[in-house]
């Protein structure tokens, strides 16, 4: 049975405000109660689940996929307890999120295969690339790694200065050629200095660019290519930064950036608001790319390694994702 069969029908239109304020808490209990001993999930429960997923920006397609999986699983294991059902629900959603890869560990203490380990950070305008780099450099540094930064956003006014302040906060060296310089040259320079100075981790910033701007995307491809000329296999990680408040367009972004620079990991920022960032579920599933980090504030320590179970749990809570 298609979920959308039910959309908008037979249900009295609720007052908008009420709908928006409807609490997510208690959904799991409700779902459990409605289901014990049955081999079918009640429509009402599915409606609620659909609403939670859609309003978390999971998107129609992935929401339907989640519902389909849960229905199949429940049809198979008919007599289940409510706690089992909650587990199933979380497992099915978690299963859509790709696991971390051993070759590219997210943990800062982990041993890195390459030296230097080169990370290129990309994304559209305003998602928080520079801030994420600032936080990452601090984490790596605290974990005992020798870190170096490259100011590859030579376009936006103030971007180089912004990264410089972060590099001072984290106390790591910054390679820069100032505003208006060729970003590919900055990237080349950064990786070359990192190599000669024996750095462990290199983080290269890039200017925000909308993924439908052909010329700017081509420029990004070039930035990536020159890095490989200095260090074999560089960049070893291409981190796409996504804003948690972004809706379905994030998928277009992920597809376009992957086409040009082959994204290997995602960083989801601004999870300290009320946005849930559900779009990463579909992206991670469809493109087989793991979410590696989440940003939860403006302070240098406000970054965490992504935890699938906690992220999924947070979808069903009113509270902030990632907050301890």
């Amino acid at each position: 049975m298609g979920l959308l069969d039910k959309l908008g029908f037979g249900k009295k239109e609720e007052k908008l405000q009420e709908g928006l304020e409807k609490t997510r808490t208690g959904f799991l209990d409700k779902m459990g109660k409605a289901l014990v001993g049955k081999d079918k999930v009640d429509d009402e429960v599915l409606d609620d689940l659909e609403e939670i997923l859609i309003t978390s920006d999971v998107g129609v397609k992935t929401t339907l996929e989640v519902i389909r999986r849960i229905e199949n699983r429940v049809a198979r294991d008919r007599f289940i307890s409510s706690s089992e059902l909650q587990k199933i629900l979380k497992e099915e959603i978690t299963g859509l999120l790709k696991e971390h890869e051993p070759d590219r560990p997210a943990e800062f203490e982990a041993e890195l295969k390459q030296k230097p380990h080169v990370i290129l950070v990309v994304g559209v305008n305003g998602v928080g690339k520079t801030t994420t780099i600032g936080k990452l450099s601090n984490m790596y540094k605290l974990a005992g790694k020798r870190v170096m930064l490259g100011a590859g956003d030579t376009f936006r006014a103030g971007a180089v200065e912004q990264l410089k302040i972060w590099s001072e906060r984290a106390d790591v060296p910054l390679i820069q050629q100032g505003h208006g310089a060729d970003p590919a040259a900055v990237a080349y320079d950064t990786v070359a200095s990192a190599k000669s100075r024996g750095a462990d981790v290199v983080l290269v910033d890039t200017a925000g660019r909308l993924h439908n701007r052909k010329a700017l995307m081509a420029e990004l491809g070039k930035i990536k290519r020159v890095m490989g000329k200095v260090v074999d296999g560089a960049p070893h990680e291409v981190l796409l930064v996504l804003d948690a408040s972004t809706g379905q367009n994030a998928l277009q972004q992920a597809l376009a950036f992957t086409e040009v620079v082959d994204v290997t990991g995602l960083a989801l920022t601004k999870l300290d608001g009320t946005a849930k960032g559900g779009i990463v579920i579909g992206i991670s599933h469809e493109m087989s790319v793991p979410v590696k980090y989440i940003g939860v504030g403006e302070k240098i320590e406000d970054l965490q390694v992504f935890d699938r179970a906690r992220f999924v749990q947070a979808l069903f809570e009113k509270t902030v994702a990632g907050s301890s």
Partner: peptide
């Protein structure tokens, strides 16, 4: 507001 904003637009605007 960023035009790419998703479902959370209602919460922030409110």
């Amino acid at each position: 507001v960023d035009s790419m904003t998703g479902q959370d637009a209602v919460n922030t605007a409110k």
